[in-house]
Design a protein around this nucleic acid. Structure first.
Length: 473
RNA sequence: GGCGCUAUCGUCUAGAGGCCUAGGACAGGUGGUUCUCAGCCAUCAGACCGGGGUUCGAAUCCCCGUAGCGCUGCCA
């Protein structure tokens, strides 16, 4: 049975990199009908926060990456890690270290000032019993260091293939800090063992940590999981992801009007390509097609244009009925409407959504475009006025058109078009002249959906009302 | 500094020694449809990091460079 985990540290947001790692774990679990486990790695008490934890869970929930077990909080298991560290000391795989972090920092700084590199020299391993008990009596804090055995550590990464590191390049790392709290290496391995994790799928930043952790598995006498290291997402400048780019919460994307499925496609398609010509996958398709072998090794740069396109595709694929609730929600949030429309009013709103759907890529696009339909308070675009309302002929034509409209009994798309074109023909002008002018008068911008649709939706009365404002412009 | 990982159009990628004159998608250019925008259709431009090998043949394998990233924390 496949068991994978997502193990974020609540010292930061669930950003797009973490969300993608989580997605790949989730897809792998669902593909293999295994379990997806959530673990919160909050052993760094000072920097972890409950608020971050909540945000991470909320982000996962929004994306729909439901977990099967957990969340397990490492901060609640400190005793377990401590015991396991002692166990290794007993086995001779680890030893007490009385060096203070400040002392170590000093030695490193000394060395680097001479242009050298200092690495832990095992001085506490060589301590005599008397020296040790003296330190103990002094109440000097002691850490536990892992005794890195000689040899070469090799493993086969599911994405990268064979990776090997000589253990002489690994220094005796700390397992348990002076304050009794575990370090990452200890807690992650203990929990991966206890939770029966079969596949460790995480970011490439852990590739160099893996040999250390393999050594730990061996010291504990536990079987190794398989490892798969995902290429890290880069920012648009090809540099490491930073706050300038995507290291804000994934929830930010929800605020900006993206759908989870678009987000999921966007995340998955950085490194993953199922090979088909398709671009927007359903969850089911992603689960079915997913495999670690199809992941590429190189770091992708994230490109928001692609996300916009994906979201736009999703919106155009959605039916008006599916889409409308989200749009209404957004209109409410923007205080454009007070409550969800119902009855006849709702039909009108559905037509509006239909009109705006093709030209929208995010839910956030709707309020702005919907505004001219919902309020007579129009912001006239100055450039548009210059371009479309300065023709002298309009002074005479528009009142005539207004009268044409006023006489109409059935103000429908077809009829409006008929009337307008007839008027243009009579006057010997292009219909476009009237159309552009009308658009400016009625919506205030040179861009909108087809004018006849717009007019029908706005209605005869309001259309005329807005046309009458003309002389004041 | 040491160690490790990576390297195909601007971006995401296809490519597992001959199918590659390197394919697709996003973004961009042009044209068409049209009342504008979007869309749709058509079309154009655009890449194998550099150098050496191996091989009849290399984007694909090997080596060396270069660059980027990661680790080198009593952070995770």
């Amino acid at each position: 049975m496949v068991r994978v985990r997502f193990a974020p540290s609540p010292t930061g947001y669930l950003h797009i990199g973490a969300a993608r790692t989580s997605l790949f774990n989730w897809l792998f679990a669902r593909h293999h009908k295994g379990k997806f486990i959530l673990r919160i790695e909050d052993t760094d008490l000072a920097r972890s926060s409950e608020e971050m934890s909540r945000g991470i869970l909320e982000g996962l929930n929004w994306l729909g990456l439901e977990w099967d077990e957990g969340p397990l909080y490492q901060s609640e298991r400190i005793d377990v890690y401590r015991k396991r560290a002692e166990e290794l000391v007993g086995k001779g795989c680890a030893y007490n270290c009385f060096c203070l972090p400040e002392e170590i920092r000093e030695r490193k700084e000394m060395a680097s000032s001479r242009g050298e590199y200092w690495e832990y020299d095992r001085r506490c391993l060589k301590l005599s019993e008397r020296e040790k008990s003296k330190f103990e009596e002094e109440g000097r804090p002691k850490a536990i260091r892992f005794l890195v055995p000689e040899g070469e550590i090799r493993y086969s990464d599911l994405i990268h293939g064979p990776i090997s590191v000589a253990s002489k390049n690994i220094e005796d790392f700390v397992l348990l800090r002076g304050d009794g709290l575990p370090t990452y290496h200890l807690s992650v391995v203990v929990d991966d063992i206890e939770q029966g994790i079969t596949h460790v799928i995480r970011g490439d930043d852990h590739i160099s940590n893996t040999p250390k952790q393999i050594l730990l598995y061996k010291a504990f006498g536990s079987p190794l999981p398989q490892f798969a290291h995902l290429a890290l997402i880069l920012g648009p400048d090809k540099k490491k992801l930073s706050k300038r780019h995507g290291v804000t919460s994934i929830l930010q994307f929800r605020e900006e009007g993206y759908f989870p499925l678009a987000m999921l496609n966007f995340l998955a398609q950085m490194s993953w390509s199922p090979g088909e010509e398709k671009r927007l996958y359903s969850l089911g398709e992603m689960i079915k097609e997913f495999s670690l072998e199809k992941l590429s090794k190189g770091s992708p740069v994230f490109d928001l244009d692609k996300l916009d396109w994906l979201n736009g595709q999703l919106i155009s694929q959605m039916s008006v009925d599916e889409l409308a609730p989200y749009v209404f929600e957004e209109l409410k949030r923007e205080n454009i409407i007070q409550s969800e429309p119902s009855g006849k009013k709702k039909d009108w709103y559905l037509k509006l959504v239909e009109l705006l759907k093709e030209r929208s890529r995010k839910i956030k696009d709707f309020p702005l475009r919907a505004k001219p339909f919902l309020s007579g308070d129009i912001d006239y675009d100055p450039a548009g006025i210059e371009k479309y309302l300065r023709d002298e002929r309009l002074e005479e034509l528009l009142p005539k058109l207004r009268e044409d409209f006023a006489r109409m009994e059935s103000f429908t798309v077809e009829n409006i078009e008929k009337v307008l074109r007839l008027r243009a023909e009579k006057e010997g002008v292009k219909a476009a002249l009237l159309i552009h002018a009308l658009r400016m008068l009625v919506v205030g911008t040179p861009v909108s959906p087809g004018i006849f649709d717009v007019l029908e939706l706005i209605g005869k009365e309001k259309t005329i009302e807005r046309m009458d404002k003309f002389p004041e412009i």
